[in-house]
Design a protein around this nucleic acid. Sequence first.
DNA 1: GTCACTGCAAACATTTTGCATGCTA
DNA 2: TAGCATGCAAAATGTTTGCAGTGAC
Lengths: 142, 142
Amino acid sequence: MTADTDTSTPKRTVRERSTRQFQAVRDELSQSPDFRTAQEIHASLRAAGASVGLATVYRALQTLVEAGTADLLRSAAGEAAYRMCGTSHHHHLVCRSCGKTVEVQGPAVETWADDMATRHGFNDVSHTLELFGVCSDCQARA
Amino acid sequence: MTADTDTSTPKRTVRERSTRQFQAVRDELSQSPDFRTAQEIHASLRAAGASVGLATVYRALQTLVEAGTADLLRSAAGEAAYRMCGTSHHHHLVCRSCGKTVEVQGPAVETWADDMATRHGFNDVSHTLELFGVCSDCQARA
DNA sequence: GTCACTGCAAACATTTTGCATGCTA
DNA sequence: TAGCATGCAAAATGTTTGCAGTGAC
């Protein structure tokens, strides 16, 4: 965490040249409304014929996150997952036992998150939410 | 993801002997109502004088998660973070720019999560939620 | 005494970084 | 042409696994 004072570190990571690779990554990420892992995106681009290095994909994604264009979270497997901001998103209800996943939408949560953020003086808010439980099938089986 | 069929895998990770190390890990995890990373727990135990191997900590935590005693999520840094179940928990509102963190409580979310889970036939539900935004200080500074 | 648990270290997977080169502006 | 972005490969970090020894039952 290291709440660094950040007195004068400009962290100047603003992309200044627009390249084919960078656009390819951004485009690929835009294709899906869901989270994609870095490796996944890299594989997709390779498959699509675009020859992009893995490091470049990571760097492009980092840039997007820093620019606030994309959101980052960690998948259960420990991989980094990215999603474009502004895309209508949903949350996942995952069964702890069999891994079954249900997509759920939560307007209430969106509203609450926004309200809570505003109340604390925060702006430009995004959130990640995941639900874990045991599905009916697994309960019956237990 | 690999939605494995799991026809008859008994998931044989049921601890049969209670050892000092295992209890130390569980105890350490119980101390804090918040998420702790595996490395953090390991360091704490070492500092406390208990000589526990890192691998053992990981194995103990895995066991706790599989037993449903603890919850697992991934920290932003990509580390595995664990928390005992049943502890009253809160959520974090994190500033994307300076890293400032505010703790927020969300009864609305708890309720919504529970309701949503029940509606889909899920039981024994837990959730993880994190909010990201830009705090007032950083906005003023920009 | 048996066998599960532990601890060390090596193996692994993912992500980051250094450096020479290519390409955008 | 100048300088940023790329690509490769090596390094770093976090986690898992194999195997021999220890301790719980």
